[in-house]
């Protein structure tokens, strides 16, 4: 994974593989360390890719449980963080598919005024400092993201909010690296305006 400005710890790959091996053998502490290293990326992926109004905390927990349950399937060829973020993205994709099957109301029916800037906030993520304008811009950007085609949306979130390398994203989406670049360029074109408004 590329470096994402965050509070996550730097990772040595040898050290990481050792942790994976220990976790596979049932070492809870090693498993906890692996999750801790990349948990912020998972929170961010879920925050941006889950359908509006869905439980981010539950999605993160489910991602962790799924990852721990199939640790033996992690090949070690990509970063563990990328693998974890991919599981999160797959879970969110599944939730979006279900949400589409039982639509509460279509995106087209929603009006700009309906944007709830707090919708992108975690339940207990109090945010007293951010200005109302900043929140509105963030919400509009999130809204624009939600309108992107699925692969553009996922590529965008995995690249910029989970810090994944292009090759990792390509593997996660099951496409060529060239396609990832195209998806990212198209996504950036669509959200550029909202992105710049949201600059702190």
């Amino acid at each position: 994974m590329a470096s994402v400005p965050s509070r996550e710890l730097p990772v040595e790959s040898d050290d990481e593989l050792t942790l994976v091996e220990r976790a596979r053998a049932g070492d809870r502490e090693a498993a906890g360390q692996l999750l801790q290293r990349y948990e912020l990326s998972v929170w961010r992926v879920c925050r941006h890719l889950l359908p509006a109004g869905e439980d981010v905390e539950g999605a993160v927990q489910e991602t962790f449980v799924r990852a721990l349950g199939k640790l033996h399937r992690y090949s070690g060829s990509g970063s563990f963080g990328g693998w974890l973020a991919t599981i999160a993205a797959n879970y969110c994709r599944d939730r979006r598919r279900r949400a589409r099957l039982v639509p509460f109301r279509s995106l087209e029916e929603e009006k700009e005024d309906d944007v709830n800037p707090l919708a992108v906030l975690p339940a207990d993520g109090a945010d007293p400092e951010r200005t109302a304008m900043g929140r509105q811009a963030m919400a509009r950007m999130q809204r624009e993201l939600e309108r992107l085609p699925r692969r553009q949306q996922e590529a965008f979130v995995l690249r910029f909010f989970a810090g994944m390398e292009l090759a990792e994203i390509a593997a996660a989406l099951g496409v060529e690296v060239g396609s990832v670049k195209t998806h990212l360029h198209r996504a950036l074109k669509r959200v550029r305006g909202q992105v710049l408004e949201a600059v702190p």
Binding site: L35, L40, F64, V65, L68, D124, D127, E129
Partner: peptide, 18 residues
């Protein structure tokens, strides 16, 4: 980062998964 959950929430969710 302002939207990231507080440490206590992260620990709780991680521990629940473990």
């Amino acid at each position: 980062e302002e939207l990231d959950p507080p440490l206590a929430t992260r620990v709780r969710v991680r521990e629940a998964a473990l």
